[in-house]
Nucleic acid binder design. Structure first.
Lengths: 340, 340
DNA sequence: CGGTCATTTGACATCGATGTCGGAATTCTG
DNA sequence: CAGAATTCCGACATCGATGTCAAATGACCG
């Protein structure tokens, strides 16, 4: 099956290849009649430009890299899907590159994909978006990047994030509105950017309501289900346990939920549990988790938009490349009025 | 930052570009001394071949496409990771392409990625690996493909799968060995290739043990958590409910588990529940699910190997391109001896 | 109607690699 | 040691598009 090239189209349309190129790239300076003829022939022959030839000559690759720490997490898949769909709409393609920080050759791996594929841009997700060494590599390669929910160095690139602080504050206020006064908090992995923000939001809401936070009602987990299990047990076995527990993500909230179940503490009658993320698992529990839905796909899509913006390169820190998207508080069965 | 090209290497090494090309591609007919010099210069300059230029001239793209129905599912992520890592090891790159069968332009989308990126091969996952129209497109484009766990048309491409029948049989035998005689089964989505095989494996084990299967102990779900909830309720509310339920995947098993919990039926004391897939959620429940671990990542890796094999094209149906990989029965807390 | 200027168009070089093929250097014959 | 056979290496064309620049065309004006 011979593939159709720009030359074939040109011949058939009776123009030069360059003119065909002009038409498919929507450049000006082509007479409307000619444009139309070319477009017709393109459709007839079902011509599709060879992306390689195109990048080779134009030094744009129409390829974006999505750099991800743990490609199996639900977080990653949502981000990926959002990026994928937006890429498609803009006729970009997406190359997913896992970054295994511990491993031997990760630096070389990253450099390889940048150099070999001539990526037009990089989307970097937490937690590796705060890995200075990684950012250095991108900068050295002159590769524009957009980071999703980074913790620091905001000036170093475009940023898409959501307001973790406000979301955690709102969730806490939700619990307070339900009558809870003694609220426990499970912090997330301190190396993730979001952990501190969520905790601060929690503290702000408590302070705003004039409530104190008992020292032993705050524990530090690592975002894993297991840590939720363990810390839940610690907190719930203590004297004067809280009437509500707000965990920094759904996996840990689930751990708390299951521990409560084991200990015979009814949810939400005797204990309210709130999570964060709206992970798929948050619906696979009983009762289902009240949680915060992050606009993960939308954040990724926004990142693609930024990278596709021709003005972005060279002015990565402009105001309009620092975006903040909205979250949603999803109320389900795991939270209720204090005392049932 | 000027990028290093093959010419730079050639000049510095005092040879022609073609010789450099020979060295990096491991071709023969290069004197060992020369080879060594070139390799040294390559390392010195940190030279990396431009993948586009390479594909343009060699008509190989070193790009594989992973065509996926639902990129967010846990299944997809595992497959993707497996493929990704193997690609990396073989210096291929992976482009993930979601296929939304219902959508308007999906045919054009697929054709686009094939034509624009000049993919070297396609990996197709269930359930779309049984979509005749999709396979037609690949064939028309002359694109070698490998399908993972297809249901039909095995002769049409290389195939990597696991033995669903044997796995379901083994799980059923496991339940029987625990003393269960009355075992319920929740079938999966009939459009997925695996559903029938798993059901047949179940029947085979039951027949092998001389046990009968009550008609109302077999229900048909669709692999969703919700269908597990609903069907679990149907089966467990009936008179003479089974002492064990084997669901065709973990999501549905989880639904059954939670329904049992709601109805006050203790697991595993009063009811054993078994799943299939070893989804991440299977560990996020209490008790954790006994299940079958599919070698998803390994299957994907094997698919990459096949596509990278230069002999594959043209002889896609050879015996050695029909692979079957091993599963593992993972025993956790959700199954136990009958009657506690 | 000749001259100026803007708009269209195409010839040609180029991007960075590999395929082909022929010549030079080396090794193997008898 | 001449002649044949290999092995090694490079000149050149090529892949399929786009950038550059100059030529051709047409519009407009006094």
């Amino acid at each position: 099956m011979k593939t159709v090239t720009i030359k074939d189209v040109a011949e058939r349309a009776g123009v030069s290849p360059k003119t065909v190129s002009r038409v498919i790239n929507g450049e000006q300076h082509v007479r409307p009649e000619v444009r139309e003829v070319v477009q017709r022939v393109v459709a007839e022959l079902d011509y599709r430009p060879n992306a390689f030839a195109r990048s080779l000559s134009s030094s744009r690759s129409y390829l974006l890299g999505l750099f991800i720490d743990d490609p199996v997490s639900g977080y990653a898949s949502d981000v990926q899907l959002g990026a994928l769909m937006r890429c498609r709409a803009r006729s970009y393609h997406l190359v997913v590159e896992p970054v295994v920080l511990g491993s031997d050759g990760w630096r070389a791996q990253v450099a390889d994909s940048i150099a070999a594929l001539r990526l037009d841009g990089a989307i970097v997700t937490p937690p590796i978006c705060d890995e200075t060494e990684l950012l250095d590599i991108f900068e050295a390669a002159g590769l524009p990047m957009v980071r999703i929910a980074p913790r620091m160095d905001f000036g170093r690139s475009g940023v898409v994030q959501m307001d973790d602080h406000a979301a955690a504050k709102e969730m806490t206020e939700h619990l307070i509105a339900l009558g809870h006064r003694s609220i426990g908090f499970v912090k997330g992995d301190p190396t993730h950017s979001a952990s501190a923000k969520r905790y601060d939001g929690f503290l702000a809401a408590m302070a705003g309501a004039g409530l104190s936070v008992a020292a032993d009602h705050v524990l530090e987990g690592d975002f894993s289900f297991r840590s939720g299990l363990e810390l839940g047990e610690v907190m719930l076995r203590r004297e004067g346990r809280p009437t509500a527990i707000f965990a920094s993500n759904d996996d840990m909230a689930l751990g708390v939920l299951i521990t409560a179940m084991k200990l015979g503490i009814g949810v939400p009658d005797m204990l309210s549990v709130a999570g964060f993320d709206d992970a798929p698992t948050s619906r696979a529990a009983w009762p289902q988790l009240t949680t915060i839905r992050q606009p993960k796909a939308e954040m990724a899509a926004a990142a693609v938009d930024i990278l596709a913006d021709p003005h972005y390169r060279g002015d990565m820190t402009a105001e309009r490349y620092q975006m903040s998207l909205d979250y949603v508080l999803v109320e389900r069965g795991s939270t209720g009025k204090v005392g049932g």
